[in-house]
């Protein structure tokens, strides 16, 4: 600590910072400085280990890191990395409806992503409801289900409920006066064509991933 500063002897204005304080306060400030410095370094170290690729340290202290980071300091900065998404994924839905006469009708596929795209086109301020809602719900679903559409745990169940509600919400008013009984979703993945100026060949056929029918 700065010892060449007379303390409390100067009448009038007080020097700023630690220089203007008497010993008990200096001790307090020193303790606080130490604690704050440790806290800041601790936080930055854990955030670093959280955003870095899985490594020796982050594997060894995974529990400590996750306890500190989640939920409020969670972050992901792999923006278009390591590679940007190279395909358009469209989420489509069809419904099974009991019409007024009591018959079962299965509707055609309706492209929900196309609705989002229409809303985004020529809009300088796209809404999160159009840009993120369905897109991220589908990501959530695919990341919490295996190839056989089996949910892994609570997150899988949540993602199913979420996706189903989005679909039902967007189907409202499209099937006349009947009762909505069941819905089925599918993801239609189409790779972007290789750039015109490159020699690459890309298969741009659309591939579908059909989910099972869900009872509404």
């Amino acid at each position: 600590m700065d010892s060449n500063d007379p303390e409390g002897t100067v009448p009038g204005p007080r020097p700023v910072g630690v220089a203007g304080l008497s010993t008990p306060y200096r001790v307090l400030v020193a303790l606080a400085l130490g604690a704050v410095a440790v806290a800041a370094c601790w936080h930055l170290a854990l955030v670093f280990l959280h955003v870095a690729p899985s490594n020796t340290l982050s594997k060894r202290h995974a529990r400590t890191i996750d306890d500190w980071i989640y939920p409020e300091f969670e972050q992901n900065w792999k923006l278009f990395a390591p590679n940007p998404l190279q395909q358009n994924v469209a989420v489509q839905v069809r419904a099974q409806v009991r019409d007024g006469a009591g018959g079962l009708v299965t509707t055609g596929w309706r492209d929900l992503t196309a609705q989002d795209t229409d809303a985004i086109r020529h809009n300088p301020l796209p809404s999160h409801t159009r840009q993120n809602e369905l897109r991220r719900a589908w990501d959530f679903y695919t990341s919490s289900h295996d190839e056989e559409e089996k949910a892994n745990g609570e997150r899988g169940a949540l993602s199913e409920a979420y996706l189903q509600r989005i679909a039902v919400r967007r189907l409202a008013g499209t099937y006349g006066g009947g009762d909505l009984l069941r819905i089925q979703l599918r993801g239609a993945t189409t790779a972007l064509p290789a750039p015109a100026w490159s020699t690459e060949q890309t298969d741009t056929a659309t591939y579908y991933r059909e989910l099972p029918w869900w009872t509404v």
Partner: peptide
């Protein structure tokens, strides 16, 4: 993080990465 993860990506390495977002329906208002 954004930079170092990109360095590892083949599309950023071959210099075509930016082409792809420019073709994604969700990211092309214009």
């Amino acid at each position: 993080t954004a930079g170092w993860y990109k360095v590892q990506g083949s599309r950023w390495q071959d210099g075509t990465a930016l082409y792809y977002p420019l073709g994604l329906d969700y990211f092309t208002p214009w």
